[in-house]
């Protein structure tokens, strides 16, 4: 498998504080990588650098054969637009736009808006019926799923998820993990920052950062969702969203995929 992302000897220094020190990392195409570590260990900094939101103080980042260091400001913006799908802990939906429109914003900045495609993306995360709702009318889990739909809409090469379940309850956490599982199955590369071991357990590979250094890097036998677990998640989801048929059909779809 070829490497979609290669990080060579990357350091990042914020005003004297070494947020990252000499990080070496090779992420093959299609891998599900979890980045763990305590607060302040440099997880978010690494995330920002991979997501082209920030540039390293030293070292090289090569994404899909392209050296990010050689790119201009607008070149980085283009990479963000073309190759990266961002999933935020705080969702960051635009408050005055509906779920559908929030997805379309990403299309708009990427290339062309396509309402049907956006609707399909929402259907993919089980929110077809909620497409016309404003963020404040959606639950946290729904908002996160809109965020995921938005991240996927432009078919990114890498999906970056920063604590995707940090603000979610257990049920919604499971829902989000199902979606990530499905994406993984479809061959997407997923890099996921989390401090929660049970979330990280879903990934194929887990690296741990400590004080800006790579403390451990190990293969993981991903948790395969147990039917019983699925069922309990399913039933809990149903309890929460009894009147949301889309939820059920979505879950059914997910189960089939798994």
């Amino acid at each position: 498998m070829s490497a979609i992302l290669e990080i060579q000897n990357v350091s990042k220094i914020y005003g004297g504080v070494k947020a990252l020190q000499n990080i070496q990392l090779l992420v093959p195409q299609g891998q599900w990588l979890a980045v763990m570590g305590p607060s302040g260990s440099g997880k978010t900094t690494l995330m920002n650098i991979i997501g082209c939101l920030d540039t390293p103080t030293s070292g090289r980042v090569i994404m899909d054969g392209l050296d990010l260091g050689s790119l201009s400001h607008s070149g980085l913006t283009a990479i963000r637009r073309e190759s990266i799908g961002l999933i935020f802990q705080e969702f960051h939906l635009i408050s005055y736009l509906t779920a559908l429109e929030n997805v379309m914003v990403a299309q708009y900045y990427h290339s062309l808006v396509d309402e049907n495609e956006a609707l399909e993306a929402l259907a993919g995360v089980g929110l077809k019926e909620r497409a016309k709702h404003l963020p404040r009318q959606l639950s946290g889990g729904e908002q996160q799923r809109v965020c995921i739909a938005r991240a996927l809409i432009n078919h990114p090469k890498v999906i970056l998820a920063d604590e995707p379940t940090g603000n979610l309850d257990e049920t919604n956490e499971r829902l989000v993990m199902f979606i990530l599982h499905r994406l993984h199955k479809q061959g997407s590369t997923i890099i996921m920052v989390t401090h929660a071991p049970d979330v990280a357990a879903h990934a194929e590979r887990i690296i741990v950062l400590e004080h800006g250094r790579l403390a451990s890097d190990r293969e993981n036998n991903p948790v395969v969702s147990q039917p019983s677990e699925q069922k309990s998640a399913d039933s809990r989801a149903e309890e929460l969203n009894q009147n949301q048929k889309s939820e059920e059909s979505f879950l059914a779809g997910t189960m089939a995929a798994v």
Binding site: T77, R81, H92, V105, A106, Y109
Partner: peptide
Amino acid sequence: KEIGLKKALGAESSR
């Protein structure tokens, strides 16, 4: 924040 998000989504600053 909205501006930051749009940029994160890959919008050009000028846009």
